[in-house]
């Protein structure tokens, strides 16, 4: 063998071994690609889908939920109701920190069970301070504790939402009724929104959510509580699959103290309007100019 051909042969063997090693190294990714159907991969942005296409997508998600998780569910696509602008207010004098709202959210919205995920976190605040530096979300004792008050925080559905502005692919936007939603099938998982949100309202699916078939809430919405895919961001959506059908969000329904007031800001007879007209309300971090739709007040 000449020196040149021997060299070529060695190079060839080296390149082949390298390619084989690369294929072996990448093998685990099959677990991810096996989960990904072509329809899913090619699916367009929610707002570009025709009614027929949406119908197909909803049925596909139902089939996938049945196949992957063994749960029979119905996924709806509830649209904003003209003449409705949702708003929320929370009475801090009444809230006792029981976290029933967080628990209701956990169940209603098919959250990951092992992480005990919820869109609501309740801060135990020091009496005499509104500074979260002196607050704590991991309290584990009888409530209400002396010298403390409680402030539940969830997505404030800002009118000038930084999360919406920063998203590079318009996977999150504000709907006509004021709810900021996410297309879980469009989000690329860059988490820029999570960095931009001043209220820690957004959550990322660090893993594929785990939930028993028997615990899955079958009453689902495309933009709300359907079981989320791995690797995308999610957040509170004011339970739009309930509220757009005239029901209360799960957290408001679960609250035993009556601290939560939810409703249509355009309806002069609504309790939320009464609160805004008669109480001295405030919003979190007003100085940032995000214009939240979620108000707090003391009696």
């Amino acid at each position: 063998m000449t020196d040149v051909t021997r060299r070529a042969a060695i190079t060839g063997i080296g390149a082949t071994l390298g390619a084989a090693a690369f294929a072996k190294a990448m093998e685990p990714i099959q677990k991810f690609t096996a989960d990904l159907s072509l329809d899913q991969f090619l699916q367009q942005h929610y707002r570009e889908l025709t009614p027929d296409e949406i119908e197909k997508v909803l049925r596909r998600i139902e089939e996938e939920t049945l196949r992957d998780r063994g749960a029979r569910v119905s996924v709806a696509d509830d649209r904003p109701i003209p003449g409705v602008q949702f708003g929320y207010a929370l009475n801090l004098s009444v809230c006792n920190g029981c976290r029933k709202c967080a628990e209701a959210c956990h169940q209603e919205n098919n959250h990951d069970r092992p992480s005990n995920q919820s869109y609501i976190r309740v801060f135990e605040m020091a009496q005499g301070s509104l500074d979260f530096e002196h607050a704590n979300t991991t309290y584990d004792h009888a409530v209400p504790a002396p010298g403390k008050y409680y402030m539940p925080v969830q997505c404030l559905q800002c009118d000038d939402a930084p999360c919406v502005a920063v998203c590079p692919v318009e996977a999150t936007w504000k709907e006509e009724d004021g709810i900021v939603v996410i297309d879980y099938d469009w989000c690329i998982g860059c988490r820029y929104c999570e960095a931009a949100c001043p209220y820690h309202a957004r959550r990322f699916n660090w893993t594929k959510p785990e939930i028993e078939a028997s615990e899955i809430n079958p009453d689902q919405g495309y933009l709300s509580n359907r079981v989320r895919p791995q690797g995308v961001v999610e957040k509170c959506h004011f339970c739009l699959h309930r509220t757009r059908r005239g029901k209360l969000p799960a957290c408001a329904e679960a609250c035993p103290t009556g601290a939560r007031v939810f409703g249509n800001l355009l309806d002069p007879e609504s309790p939320i309007r009464w609160v805004l007209d008669n109480k001295r309300v405030f919003v979190l971090k007003e100085e940032l100019g995000t214009r939240p739709r979620f108000f707090y007040f003391f009696d």
Binding site: H45, P168, V169, E170, C187, I188, G189, V232
Partner: peptide, 20 residues
């Protein structure tokens, strides 16, 4: 590698995806 869904990188391509 920081992206949760690199399979959706095409969502960023102007024209095909939605480039914000």
């Amino acid at each position: 590698v920081d992206m949760g869904r690199p399979d959706r990188l095409w969502h960023m391509i102007p024209g095909i995806g939605r480039f914000h």
